[in-house]
């Protein structure tokens, strides 16, 4: 019964979440390209999508039971966590670029500089974080 509920309410959603989290950096990169080339803002619903994805991944990391199938591939959950941070950085970059494309808060040049700085800063923090707290193999068997 427990397994059935997990499959119906969690794994059915989690499998597309895994695939989409891996594909999301490419989608976000395309959005950034659209803003810069066409000079038009893109609709930013990606933050809501990312919030949902990160919540599902958190559940897999938090719960031994829900995360069991995903721990069969050792690297999967840490990879998904890293992708969530990277996607977060890209979404922040898009928000900054959208502020130029939609509101004209600053020039295009500054928008690119701010977006790059935000992405690099988050990636740098991520590197420091993983240096201080390296990924360890969990003993869930």
């Amino acid at each position: 019964m427990k397994w059935l509920l997990a499959i119906v309410f969690y794994h059915i959603v989690m499998i597309p979440v895994v695939i989409m989290t891996i594909l999301l950096p490419f989608i976000l990169y395309k959005d950034i390209k659209t803003i810069l080339i066409n000079e038009v803002p893109v609709s930013n619903g990606m933050d809501a999508v990312l919030a949902m994805f990160s919540f599902f991944i958190y559940l897999a990391v938090r719960s031994k039971f829900l995360g069991k199938p995903y721990r069969k591939i050792t690297i999967l959950l840490p990879l998904l966590q890293m992708l969530i941070y990277t996607n977060g950085a890209l979404v922040i970059g898009i928000v900054i670029l959208n502020k130029w494309a939609n509101d004209g808060l600053y020039s295009k040049g500054w928008a690119i500089v701010f977006a790059c700085l935000a992405i690099v800063a988050i990636r740098l923090l991520m590197s420091l974080f993983y240096r201080k707290f390296p990924i360890v193999q969990t003993d869930y068997r």
Partner: peptide, 24 residues
């Protein structure tokens, strides 16, 4: 280390969720 990674992804989920509400 394991707990910190768990907390970090949980906090990230929370922050992104709040940002999504604020931005959308």
């Amino acid at each position: 280390s394991k707990n910190i990674h768990r907390t970090a992804i949980g906090l990230t989920a929370l922050v992104i969720f709040c940002a999504a509400i604020f931005l959308n």
